[in-house]
C-alpha cells in the first residue's frame, strides 16, 4: 500500500467534535454537581464527589481537547478512479481500501452540530461493510458523493 492518503477532512471538524463531546460531557458534570447537593443532605464525606470531579476534569480534557485533535490529524482519505482509500484511528491506525465496484450506495448525513459548521458526514456502504468519511465541507461531501456514485458501477453478477 502506498503512503497515507492525501486529503484531510475539514479543519472545522475539530470544533464540531469538541462541541458534541462537550455536550455529552454535560451529563456526567450535571450528575457530579448534583451529588454535592445530595451529600449536603445525607451524611457522606465529600471525598467521593470531589474525586469524581477530579476524574471528570481529566476525562473532559482528554475527550474534548485532546482526542478530536488527534482524530482530525489521523483522518485522511483519497479518491481514486477505481477505489477509495481511507485512514483513521487514534491509537490503532487503520487504512482501508474499498474498490469502487464494491460500493453499493453513498450517503451524506448532517446533524445539527455539523450543520452549524456547514459540514457533513459521508458514508460509503458495500454489501458487507460501511465506511465513513466524517466532517467534510458540505459542498465537498456532496461532490464526493456524486463522484463516487458515478464511479461505482456495480456489475449485476457480482454481489
Amino acid at each position: 500500500m502506498r503512503e497515507a492518503p492525501k486529503n484531510r477532512i475539514a479543519k472545522d471538524a475539530i470544533k464540531a467534535w469538541r462541541l458534541s463531546a462537550a455536550l455529552v460531557m454535560l451529563v456526567p458534570w450535571a450528575l457530579a454537581i448534583a451529588s454535592f447537593f445530595l451529600v449536603h443532605f445525607i451524611e457522606v464525606t465529600y471525598w467521593y464527589s470531589t474525586s469524581a470531579v477530579a476524574l471528570l476534569i481529566v476525562v473532559t480534557y482528554l475527550v474534548v481537547v485532546f482526542v478530536p485533535k488527534i482524530r482530525w490529524r489521523r483522518w485522511r482519505y483519497e479518491l481514486f478512479e477505481q477505489e477509495i482509500y481511507i485512514q483513521h484511528g487514534i491509537l490503532v491506525v487503520s487504512r482501508t481500501l474499498v474498490p469502487m465496484i464494491r460500493v453499493q450506495h453513498v450517503d451524506t448525513k448532517q446533524g445539527p452540530i455539523l450543520k452549524r459548521y456547514r459540514l457533513s458526514n459521508l458514508t460509503i456502504s458495500t454489501a458487507a461493510t460501511v465506511h465513513e468519511i466524517p466532517a467534510l465541507p458540505e459542498k465537498e461531501a456532496a461532490d464526493l458523493r456524486d463522484q463516487i456514485s458515478e464511479l461505482a458501477r456495480v456489475d449485476e453478477d457480482d454481489v
Binding site: M1, V93, S94, T96, T126, A128
Partner: peptide
C-alpha cells in the same frame, strides 16, 4: 472481497 483493512497500533 468487499474491502481490505490494515491496522497498526
Amino acid at each position: 472481497v468487499q474491502s481490505i483493512q490494515l491496522r497498526q497500533t
